[in-house]
């Protein structure tokens, strides 16, 4: 069976006033408070805390090398080993994007291009990072392995326009990715 019925615990009249639970909670938070002030927070050492509590003093110290492989930073566009821009502007990421952060203007690959076999490429590809919620659905929806969630998280736009990443910026952030499937080969 997919679900399990759990019986609600019977609580006595004494417990129903929740006074003990309430006071117990107050004691726990007070304990944390006292331990923080005297600098003995739990797992402070393991987490590399500094000063009071377990906080890592962010701009000076960073967590970067502990970032897990599956960490979802800002989305980027990548180029393949052959230098081809992998995005073919199928607009599936635009469709799946729950925050509607992606806007793509599709266009044609010029006939004299080395990659005119692909026919289609984005003219403009914008991700509004003020809307992006870093869910990674674009990466999952992408049939061309073109959009990836990077490990980057340092984004500080100073105005709203700078918060919108255009195609050039996305490729600059993404760079080249190795070991992707080369679908648009001669035998496709």
């Amino acid at each position: 069976m997919a679900f399990k019925t759990i019986k609600r615990p019977k609580i006595s009249i004494g417990e129903r006033f929740y006074l003990k639970a309430l006071l117990g909670g107050l004691v726990i938070t007070m304990k944390h408070l006292v331990l923080s002030i005297i600098g003995k927070s739990r797992s402070k050492k393991e987490l590399g805390g500094s000063g009071i509590g377990v906080t890592m003093q962010y701009p000076e110290y960073r967590w970067d090398k502990h970032l897990p492989e599956y960490y979802r930073g800002y989305p980027v566009l990548v180029k393949g080993e052959d230098g081809r821009e992998r995005c073919v502007s199928c607009q599936l990421c635009e469709f799946i994007c729950p925050a509607r952060a992606i806007t793509i203007k599709p266009g044609e690959v010029p006939a004299d291009s080395q990659w005119n076999k692909v026919e289609k490429a984005p003219v403009e590809f914008e991700i509004d990072m003020l809307r992006c919620i870093y869910c990674g659905m674009c990466q999952e929806a992408c049939p061309e392995q073109a959009i990836f969630m990077s490990q980057g998280y340092l984004l500080t736009p100073t105005d709203k326009k700078a918060g919108v990443h255009n195609k050039a910026k996305l490729y600059e952030l993404g760079g080249t990715k190795q070991g992707l499937v080369n679908k648009w080969n001669a035998y496709k």
Partner: peptide
């Protein structure tokens, strides 16, 4: 059939 769906207008 080619794997054209991402670039095919009929998709």
């Amino acid at each position: 059939h080619p794997l054209d769906c991402p670039i095919c207008d009929q998709a």
